[in-house]
Computed example of a mutant assay.
Amino acid sequence: MRVLVVGDIVGRPGRKTFEKYVRNFKEKYDFIVANGENSAAGFGITSKIAEEFYALGVDVITSGNHIWDKKEIYTYLEGTDRLLRPLNYPKGVPGKGYTIVKSRSGIKVGVVSLQGRVFMPPTDCPFTRFSEVIEEIKRECKIIIVDFHAEATSEKIAMGRYFDGKISVLYGTHTHVQTADEKILLEGTGYISDVGMTGSDNGVIGMDAKSIIPKFIECLPQRFEIANGKERLNGLDIEIDEETGECTRIDRINMSLSQIEIY
């Protein structure tokens, strides 16, 4: 099975770039997962944007700490199993932390959204919460894809090692900076510390530099604005063995909008 994973989609520039990519390349993929927690002006996601992603061919939307930024999404989360909030938020909050969706060819795929705890808002332990449900997921499908939305690379690496051989792929999101450590771990799990982001490369992790830099200099609250220009898509092109659930190939995608438009 060939899977497309897309890093944090940031605002309108990210949505535009993502749309161009999937319109040109989606026929290559059996399954598409995208992180959409920054897709609405850089903070959160709306139900309208989620539906637009589904129409483009996205099977599951993962998220992270910004999933709560648009209040309308609380109700929407209760009625969907294709937009995930992190599994390890306290039990009883709106939404689901994992789902099982069929691929284009009818193969069941489990997708899990987790959030880290190092340098992140307080949540329950992601190791423990995922351990509580992994066997339940594995009873239904062999392919399990995990988006670990976390800051510290050490926490991401530890999570990859801990679940190596039990899941197909674990990839990091949140930092918006693509790492170059993609690999298949010892027991067959694909891994990368961070997929990166989809949006403008002109600013600071997708936001306009003029609105970000004063925050570091003055230490005062600032209104952040979306950056524009030099848009790029960061993601993963993955092959997974449908019989074993093991990752057989994991390649980074780092394409400019101009490169995408050539096709």
Results as ranks from 00 to 15, higher is better:
residue 225 E to V: 15
residue 173 T to V: 14
residue 222 Q to N: 13
residue 249 R to W: 04
residue 152 A to E: 05
residue 186 L to C: 12
residue 237 D to I: 01
residue 212 I to H: 06
residue 231 E to W: 11
residue 126 P to T: 11
residue 128 T to M: 09
residue 158 A to T: 11
residue 132 E to R: 11
residue 133 V to R: 00
residue 198 T to E: 00
residue 229 G to P: 02
residue 165 G to C: 05
residue 147 D to K: 10
residue 249 R to S: 12
residue 218 E to F: 11
residue 205 I to V: 15
residue 136 E to D: 10
residue 212 I to N: 07
residue 199 G to A: 07
residue 133 V to D: 01
residue 163 F to P: 00
residue 192 I to V: 15
residue 113 S to E: 12
residue 246 E to P: 05
residue 127 F to Q: 02
residue 185 L to R: 02
residue 185 L to C: 12
residue 174 H to E: 08
residue 207 M to P: 08
residue 237 D to Y: 01
residue 197 M to D: 03
residue 246 E to C: 12
residue 190 G to Q: 02
residue 178 Q to T: 02
residue 146 V to R: 00
residue 198 T to R: 00
residue 206 G to M: 05
residue 212 I to T: 15
residue 171 Y to V: 10
residue 189 T to G: 00
residue 124 D to M: 13
residue 141 C to R: 03
residue 189 T to Q: 01
residue 223 R to M: 12
residue 154 S to I: 04
residue 140 E to Y: 07
residue 178 Q to C: 06
residue 134 I to C: 00
residue 236 L to F: 03
residue 204 V to N: 10
residue 147 D to L: 07
residue 197 M to V: 13
residue 164 D to W: 02
residue 206 G to C: 08
residue 116 G to W: 05
residue 178 Q to W: 01
residue 123 T to Q: 08
residue 129 R to V: 12
residue 113 S to T: 15
residue 137 I to D: 01
residue 245 G to E: 06
residue 246 E to S: 13
residue 249 R to I: 06
residue 197 M to W: 08
residue 244 T to G: 02
residue 224 F to I: 14
residue 210 K to Y: 12
residue 221 P to C: 01
residue 225 E to K: 13
residue 245 G to Y: 01
residue 200 S to P: 07
residue 141 C to H: 08
residue 234 N to E: 10
residue 251 D to L: 14
residue 227 A to C: 07
residue 226 I to K: 07
residue 112 V to E: 00
residue 213 I to D: 07
residue 165 G to M: 00
residue 211 S to C: 11
residue 228 N to C: 09
residue 129 R to A: 04
residue 230 K to P: 05
residue 197 M to K: 10
residue 164 D to L: 08
residue 116 G to D: 08
residue 232 R to G: 01
residue 227 A to L: 09
residue 144 I to M: 10
residue 213 I to S: 10
residue 159 M to N: 05
residue 200 S to C: 07
residue 203 G to D: 08
residue 228 N to I: 14
residue 218 E to K: 12
residue 154 S to W: 03
residue 200 S to M: 10
residue 229 G to M: 00
residue 204 V to H: 12
residue 209 A to S: 14
residue 174 H to I: 11
residue 145 I to A: 01
residue 112 V to G: 00
residue 144 I to Q: 10
residue 128 T to E: 07
residue 212 I to W: 11
